[in-house]
Design a protein around this nucleic acid. Structure first.
Lengths: 215, 215, 215, 215
DNA sequence: GATGAATGAGATTTCATTCAT
DNA sequence: AATGAATGAAATCTCATTCAT
């Protein structure tokens, strides 16, 4: 279809595209603003200003400030879930899958620090929106299934509660992200790599020195 | 006047006691209200009503709503720090000390759920007041020192970053508390005991099966 | 499009005009309210009600109640200064210039009694905002220059401190305005005329009888 | 009566004296506080703190904050009126009486600057209390009578409105005080003396150079 | 007299949301 | 779609005054 679109069709398509573009503009601006000032302290007009639009226009795209936050969460968390699922469906052994998931979560900090800031500080446990709890739970379930498979395959100890273990694993990851967000843990590519190693070492291998036949 | 108190002295002492009592009344009410509605959503008059006082009186004791939250944090976190320090100064081996610290943190949920709710949701990473970051850091330092001692004594693997390990340990604990706070993890005395066991098993011993035949 | 205005341009211009109109609406209402109740006793909502707007809108145009008062002062005092400057730049003799300035000040009472009420009672010496002192000083400087010129031209006695003389002159005028504001001096066109005559007679000619036989 | 007072009598007298002393303490503190911060901006507790008492005690001596201001005014203005009346009843010529009155008013600045600050800024025209207008009027009446006598005795020009003249005279004085209060006119003993001279020169002799048979 | 805890009306200001243009 | 003026509920905080002790 080199130019088969009617005169009618094109503007419509362009409009939709432009509309989608502006929607994204607002969401991106919101992430920056929420990251900078926090959800409650940010004003709708701050977001609009950051996005370069009139604040009234925001209400054409979102029904409320809360919905902006919810959308930020939903769309990004959804993508994350997808990537975790992809790891889960790989053929790697359970511990390698955990490593892959740690990588995804920890590297998000370098990819989009503002987004992590918002997720960690505003969404993770702030319960602005109860709807999100379910979606967050999906991540835990994924991790939990990996743990369970590891146990079934004899790679992981069978005596541990897989649900708690998955929470602990995720908690360790999130806390490291928090350390970066709060500027309390040293930052940088190398640090991210070390964090990946450490979380896997600790959670999979444990702190305690292995006895028996060598390491 | 055998007891040496003047007529002046007594009422003063009584007043101070009463004043301190009321201060505590307000703080306790604030914890309940913040736990129920969240810091931002709670109104000062909600706290006052919960405490059974006029809202103006709150400003006799605290300079702002924010100071109320900061005080709730400071006083309770301080107490927690004291208990962690006590464990640190015991003669137990490092892994037992970690277990002791896990106990303290996890049992706080049963002792005072509202307080944990507030600490987890409003203070831990909410960025209200940066002053608190330092005090939170003190807890990490304590844990970190235990890890380092464990490494020095040959109980813990020396190749792991003790700082990251302490964050991971604390993160696991906090995530479990969060699970309870959000109603996502099953609750109850038995569950707390299992959580204690699991966090220590995972962090100290690791998920991976310990085998004679190495990994 | 013969007139060169785009479809975009017109509404914008209209809006600006409407906005300016509303700004003035608020300022006028503020003058009436301040005149009636005094600055401190007036509430922002009184001003809004008098202007027929929601009180929140006032903050669209002014950042605070204090800024409303400051603006009332600045804009009106600025106009007054302009008129004084105009008199100063005339070719009249010094005493005639003083008469002209007295006219301006005294007639403002009949033109806009509420404004005079506010200027006399709230701004003149009330110390709300020190920024205004400078601008008030400009009026004194103008008068002082006229006095100095009168002295240089041999019309006024050269032995008098021109600065003090200008303050005395202005003080006499302001006191008469105050008498009208407080209802202590009789009011009316004729009275204003008499006040003009008297202030010039007193300040220029003095109370003392001029005699052939000197004093 | 070396010691004729009964046991009953003394304490009573002492108490009254102590009570009166405290009352004065509060009034003096109020003058300082009002001078510093202005009436509306001063809090009752500021006055109490300045006086070194509990703020509740202020209400044993005065029924309200407003009454404190009214009392400050009444007592001090009354004293001033007495001194003006004393000048009026002297045998001096009218212009000398005016000079005496100017002295009293202007020197009050050096005697008690804080009091002048309060009188000029809070009482003179602020109409916090309408009751005071009458008492202020008494000062004008006194001046006016002097002017009228001066006219009757042929010292002052008979064609001028004596009421307006007295307001102008008083206005000139008050404006100079205001200049000092606002830090806009140079201060000091010498300046006060010059101000006395100038106000009398201007109001009695006028600015205009005397013609006829020399000065 | 003296204290200061307690009250509560009330004031300013903010800001999410709506809506006319 | 886009603007930003307009609304008004709501929240924090102040402080004169009262009153139990």
């Amino acid at each position: 279809m080199t130019d088969g679109s009617t005169a009618q069709e094109r503007p419509t398509r362009d409009r939709q595209a432009a509309s989608e573009e502006k929607r994204r503009l607002i969401l991106d601006a919101a992430v920056r603003v929420f990251a900078r000032s926090g959800y409650h302290t940010s004003r709708v007009s701050d977001i609009a200003e950051e996005a370069g639009i009139a604040h009234g226009l925001l209400y054409h795209y979102f029904s409320s400030k809360e919905e902006v936050l919810a959308t930020v969460f939903r769309e990004n968390w959804g993508e994350l879930l997808g990537r975790l699922a992809h790891v889960e469906s790989s053929n790697e052994p359970a511990d390698e899958q955990l490593r892959g998931m740690a990588k995804i979560l920890l590297r998000s900090w370098r990819n989009d620090p503002d987004l992590v800031r918002v997720m960690v500080r505003e969404v993770a446990r702030s319960s602005h929106l109860n709807d999100q709890i379910e979606e967050i739970g999906a991540a835990f379930s994924t991790i939990q299934r990996v743990v369970e498979r590891g146990q079934a395959e004899g790679v992981f100890r069978p005596d541990l509660d897989p649900r708690l273990a998955s929470w602990i694993f995720y908690g360790g990851l999130e806390e490291i992200l928090t350390g970066w967000v709060l500027g309390q843990l040293p930052d940088g590519d190398e640090e991210v790599a070390r964090a990946e190693r450490t979380i896997i070492d600790v959670v999979c291998g444990g702190l305690t020195v292995r006895g028996g036949s060598g390491s």
